[in-house]
Write a protein that binds this DNA or RNA. Sequence first.
DNA 1: GTCAAATCATTACAAGCTAGAACGATTCTC
DNA 2: GAGAATCGTTCTAGCTTGTAATGATTTGAC
Lengths: 162, 162
Amino acid sequence: MNTAVEAVVPPPGPGPGSAFLLAQIGAHAAGRFAERIGALDLTPPQTGLLRAVAAAPGQSQQALASVLGTPPSRLVALVDQLDERGLVERRRNPADRRLHALYLTSAGEELLRRIADVGREHDDAICAALDDGERATLRALLARIADEQGLTPGVHPGYRHV
Amino acid sequence: MNTAVEAVVPPPGPGPGSAFLLAQIGAHAAGRFAERIGALDLTPPQTGLLRAVAAAPGQSQQALASVLGTPPSRLVALVDQLDERGLVERRRNPADRRLHALYLTSAGEELLRRIADVGREHDDAICAALDDGERATLRALLARIADEQGLTPGVHPGYRHV
DNA sequence: GTCAAATCATTACAAGCTAGAACGATTCTC
DNA sequence: GAGAATCGTTCTAGCTTGTAATGATTTGAC
């Protein structure tokens, strides 16, 4: 778990601003999610890669690196780890033998289903303070912020290793 | 700026869950805030320390480390940087000369006012998609989540260096 | 009243992670 | 067919961070 000094006591006055609360809760949510998938022996980056492969099977590592915003050299080690565990596999493209197209194995698909379960549990735990209507309201507000801020749906910068 | 692989394509179905949106937007907000205070030659940890000192002047470094959740050895370098720039000062406690009580200088207080301005601008930019009523709704929902999740008001784990 | 244990700040050290450049293999372009 | 470009990989250097040892000072026990 990551521990570091950070912004403290936001703009004094009417309590913390929305941006501070978003950063605080966002970091908390990411940390808790990392704990949960840690029970599946996965790190957040590994989970992100699994999901990206599932969303678009057959992509090259270069393309994935571009989408995920990570240097290609980092993907190599990540793919190695998942490959060794039999979750993804590299297939050489016969048409262009430079490329390694990535696919999920059946074990990878099975694990991804469990990740989805964990994600729902996580979501429910984070929003425990809110009823269904309030959760819908929150989701709508957040979606509008994410859209206006130009955030790529489904991608966000990573936090830390586990 | 930090770039790393992360969770992608959250629980398929009715779009991303709230927890994912929170993590995504939170990381984005933290990154943008880091950029803004970077214009003042400050990193997020430095800003956090300045605010913590302002909130409770005269604290020992040990006490601050405990509040901020950082190892004391890290605080030393942090305080050094701020001390060299004349923003905080260490005063030996005459009653217990082991302790270094920390205080803001007038320059530190002046800078803190500018940080507060930056914080307000930042908050406004992040919530640009929402009108005043919606911002109040969002703030209220977030505050309830933060409270229910047991988050210490004004403190959150740090992201990264600038 | 003195000596051992505890506390605080600091320094030294080691380990981990990351980004970027350099490197073979392969393919595209002219 | 030759040179430039692309892809995956490896290597390396830099940085950040946490833990452990150090020195000064205080507290508590006897």
